[in-house]
């Protein structure tokens, strides 16, 4: 550069400078920095919303395990759920999230009717019992891979993948996993529950059809999340999904959520 020559020192020049100095003494910055990097499109990322067109329900147990599906569950005023509905909901769930997935505030407070999933729902138990499908010797590998049993992204690798059209050698094992997991969960539940027709070991959340979720609504000005209600739970699970699988699986709404998380990360 060359430092720009001082502007013509017109009559007002010194006075304007004095005025600025007084502002400086009052704490006004003398240098402004322009922030331009990707502000605009990224801001529009914050505006994103997604629509859940058909009714979507979420079942959460005391450990924070969660099932997402479209089945219904009868609920008493006390909040107890019909056990057989619960079993069938779990069986037909589209997604199963492992223990710890649903944040505390979404879980049932207590569980007096026996919790049928406690036994095998803890941390990594659900991984190690199975043969490692790919022959990896790291048993631990299966822990992380485990939750995908109900999130069949490898069935649909490539955009043409139709349900059930398993594209590669991994998917077979994913499928086995899925069935193994479910069979076990169900059997156990039946055994434990015996005759009890109602259970308070779960909470049931419903999202009606055509619900629009704008993740940014759950975001406070300082970037922390304040999730509540069924939609908040949905976002929490989407976040969990994102943590594990990234954006590949197409969990509904995930791109929108990711765009916001990216915004927070890259702004």
């Amino acid at each position: 550069m060359v430092v720009a020559k001082l502007q013509e020192k017109d009559k007002g020049f010194l006075e304007r400078r004095r005025h600025l100095l007084r502002l400086g003494a009052a704490g006004v910055p003398m240098v402004l920095t322009l922030k331009a990097s990707a502000t605009e499109p990224v801001h529009s990322a914050l505006d994103c919303a997604f629509v859940i067109p058909s009714a979507t329900n979420i079942l959460v147990d005391v450990d924070g395990k969660a099932w997402i599906g479209d089945g219904d569950i009868q609920e008493k005023n006390s909040g107890e759920l019909k056990t057989s509905d619960v079993t069938s909901f779990k069986q037909n769930a589209e997604f199963v999230f492992p223990s710890g997935s649903a944040p505390d505030q979404f879980r049932p407070d207590e569980c007096s009717t026996g919790d049928d999933d406690d036994y095998w729902g803890n941390d990594c138990g659900w991984g190690n019992d199975y043969d490692e499908p790919t022959g990896d010797n790291d048993d631990q590998g299966s822990c992380q891979a485990d939750p995908d049993r109900n999130t069949p992204w490898f069935e649909e690798e490539g955009e043409d993948g139709e349900p059930g059209n398993r594209g590669n050698s991994y998917s077979g094992s994913g499928n086995d996993y899925q069935h193994g997991g479910k069979g076990k969960g169900k059997g156990k539940g039946d055994d434990d529950d015996g005759g009890s027709a109602w259970t308070d070991c779960y909470k049931f959340y419903q999202i009606s059809s055509n619900t629009t979720i704008s993740p940014a609504d759950y975001l406070s000005g300082n970037g922390s999340w304040n999730l509540s209600g069924a939609n908040g739970l949905y976002l929490a699970l989407a976040g969990k999904y994102l943590d594990t699988y990234g954006n590949d699986g197409g969990f509904p709404g995930i791109s929108c959520l990711l765009s916001i998380l990216n915004y927070l990360e890259y702004q």
Partner: peptide, 8 residues
């Protein structure tokens, strides 16, 4: 797991 819960 904690990470998962917290993100919620």
């Amino acid at each position: 797991f904690r990470k998962a819960i917290r993100r919620g």
